[in-house]
């Protein structure tokens, strides 16, 4: 077995029951994702991308099929172990940011650290501050989510995803609520994290966004219909130079 494989799923299905109706969100997925890959998952709305991400992120359990994470069958893990995996191995970035309201950027970033091993307040603050520096928002540490622009909120969410130094980052339409330039800025960040060694799985239904990944998997009706390397990888930092600056947003605070 190739010990470079991080994620290995076989025959993964997920069926939701809505009263009398069964919704087959996933109809048998077979996939391997290696360490240090940067994968984009494409597909129309309703094709099962979010459902698949929830399974990869151990936020939900599959109806059938196996999911090996680092060689360990997730189905064999108890609640406690899964909680620990969520806390330490995986960083999530959601389309709607999901920051706690009335909570400063720094405190939001600290959140995963509160639920892991005992750590001094100072160490926690330092780690969170470092993560904010990585996403370029150290100067907004004391701001509340409603005082930040959408792009800034998403960057805070990314800081929260990386604060615990996870193995891989799952991002479900992270640019879905952002304008073009801000989206590319967020992609620049993901490319930077990837270059620093993180595995990234990113869901998007925008072709422009998928071009920053190295491998593109396409879903349709709960199945993988194509899985190809990206032959035309764009570099976000280069693209950014070509895009007009919308300085208005940076002034919002």
């Amino acid at each position: 077995m190739d010990n470079n494989i991080l994620i290995s799923v076989k025959g993964l299905t997920k069926t939701y029951q809505m009263g009398e109706v069964y919704v087959h969100a996933l109809r048998g997925i077979d996939l391997d994702i290696d360490n240090r890959e940067f994968v984009a998952i494409m597909g129309a709305s309703g094709s099962g991308k979010t459902t698949f991400m929830n399974l990869l992120g151990c936020l939900d359990r599959p109806t059938t099929g196996t999911y090996l994470l680092d060689g360990i069958n997730v189905a064999d893990m108890d609640d406690k172990a899964i909680t620990q995996v969520r806390n330490q191995k995986i960083g999530y970035v959601f389309q709607a940011f999901y920051l706690l309201p009335r909570t400063t950027a720094l405190e939001n970033v600290e959140l995963p650290l509160l639920y892991c091993r005992k750590m001094s307040t100072k160490e926690r603050k330092e780690k969170a501050m470092y993560a904010l520096e990585v996403v370029g928002l150290a100067d907004r540490a004391k701001h509340y989510p409603n005082q930040l622009s959408g792009g800034q909120q998403q960057r805070v969410a990314i800081a929260r995803a990386i604060v615990n130094d996870p193995v891989f980052i799952l991002a479900d339409e992270p640019t879905g609520n952002l304008d073009t330039r801000t989206s590319v800025e967020v992609m620049e960040l993901f490319q930077k994290l990837h270059s620093e060694g993180k595995t990234i799985v990113l869901v998007t239904h925008e072709f422009d966004i998928s071009r920053y990944a190295l491998r593109i998997i396409t879903f349709r009706d709960g199945k993988v219909i194509s899985d190809v390397p990206n032959n035309d990888v764009h570099i976000a930092s280069v693209d950014l130079k070509k895009l007009p600056r919308l300085d208005i947003e940076e002034e919002v605070s």
Binding site: G57, L59, D79, K80, T83, Q84, R86, N87, Q88, Y92, Y98, L99, L100, L111, P112, Y115, C116, R160, N164
Partner: peptide, 16 residues
């Protein structure tokens, strides 16, 4: 509810 969901997603257990 959303706060609870977020906390659980980043590693809070039921007990927490």
């Amino acid at each position: 509810i959303k706060e609870i969901g977020i906390r659980m997603a980043v590693g809070a257990s039921k007990r927490d």
